[in-house]
Design a protein around this nucleic acid. Structure first.
Length: 352
DNA sequence: AAGTCGGGGGA
DNA sequence: TCCCCAGACTT
């Protein structure tokens, strides 16, 4: 099989069928950069509203470099993988200091920036600057594996490098960006990961070995990942009739730097929950058990139990970490991750 | 090479 | 439920 056969049919198909996306065909490398960071492990539909808001608030590299951390996290709230935006800001500062505020235009320089790995460097270099370099993401791994009927484990980095080589060798000089995007677009809408591949609509099915041997649903091969660990937690909605207590998470680790409802390890009985609140120097008046909730991260599962506790006054606490937010403030200032979604609504409700 | 880091949509 | 998404960084 000659892999090169896919190039022209694929590019033509892409140009005739590509989706209209807010960051596409904009001739603005900063937009390409922002979109590629947001799209890391994140679906197009999820990114759309975040992208629009982000470039409106931070229209250029300069404004990104100077944005306060709280505002930055608020713009990313709910999108996940929060280090992406911190890394992007660090890179923006590097661009400002070392590249005269202009995003560098070659693959190697892009690769040296924080948060830009081999995929993203290839995507920006090819899409925004027309450089002839591959951009191999999960879509491309799947598409190329199926075309070549490869049963190698795509979770191995050696396999990714091999596929980068294969793509490099067939990359057209006249439209590297369109070709890379065509491979990804095909993977996103035709050669799909979940469910049946739409081979009847595929412009390169004629040369696809997996399709010829009816094995598209067996490829790609990927090593199984280990099971998630479970974590029992007790969440506290502590209110004094005016405000609700929240706190800032540590600067490193899971949900770093975001805000949360106070919560601790283990499932506590209501007596122990009251004891905990008293240890904070608070005077509980009333306790209500809330429905349990679950939140699934990539590698951890939180099984949450929760109590809503009314106290006489939050101001008596010994705990310097606690922040008191009113119903009106709650949504505007502090980035609270979706993991607390089941309980966040109580912040805006009156205690009884 | 393996572990960490979010959240949601679709089968 | 499970899978995976226009992945990168740390250990």
């Amino acid at each position: 099989m000659v892999l090169e056969e896919i190039v022209r049919p694929l590019v033509k198909w892409y140009r005739d069928n590509k989706r209209i996306l807010p960051w596409r065909d904009k001739d603005n490398a900063y937009y390409t950069w922002v979109s590629e960071i947001m799209l890391q492990q994140t679906r197009v539909e999820a990114v759309k509203p975040y992208f629009q808001r982000f470039i409106t608030e931070l229209p250029d590299i300069q404004s990104l470099a100077e944005c306060p951390e709280e505002k930055l996290l608020k713009l990313w709230e709910g999108l996940g993988y929060y280090n992406r935006v911190r890394n992007m800001q660090e890179a923006a500062k590097t661009v400002k200091d070392e590249y005269n505020g202009r995003l560098p235009e070659d693959y190697q320089a892009l690769l040296s920036l924080k948060g830009i790995g081999s995929y993203t460097a290839g995507a920006i270099a090819s899409i925004a600057y027309g450089e002839k370099v591959p951009a191999v993401d999960g879509n491309v791994l799947r598409v190329i594996s199926r075309i070549t009927e490869s049963t190698e484990d795509i979770s191995r980095q050696s396999v990714r490098r091999k596929i980068e080589q294969q793509v490099s060798q067939i990359m057209p000089s006249d439209c590297p960006g369109d070709f890379n995007q065509a491979l990804m677009e095909l993977g996103a809408v035709i050669c799909v990961p979940n469910g049946q591949a739409k081979c009847a609509e595929c412009p390169i099915a004629f040369t696809c070995l997996a399709h010829r041997h009816d094995k598209a649903d067996m490829i790609p091969v990927k090593a199984p990942k280990k099971a998630r660990t479970q974590d029992n937690r007790t969440v506290f909605i502590i209110q004094d009739g005016e405000c609700t207590a929240i706190r800032k998470r540590p600067e490193k680790g899971l949900l770093a730097g975001l805000y949360e409802l106070p919560n601790i390890q283990g499932h506590l009985k209501s007596e122990d929950a009251l004891l905990y609140v008293k240890e904070l120097g608070l005077d509980p008046l009333y306790i209500e058990e809330l429905p349990p909730a679950k939140h699934i991260f990539s590698h951890i599962e939180w099984r949450m139990q929760a109590y809503r506790i009314k106290v006489s006054s939050l101001k008596t606490t010994q705990d310097k970490e606690l922040i008191f937010v009113s119903k009106e403030q709650s949504g505007k200032q502090y980035a609270i991750p979706s993991a607390f979604g089941a309980y966040a609504k109580y912040i805006k409700e009156e205690t009884r």
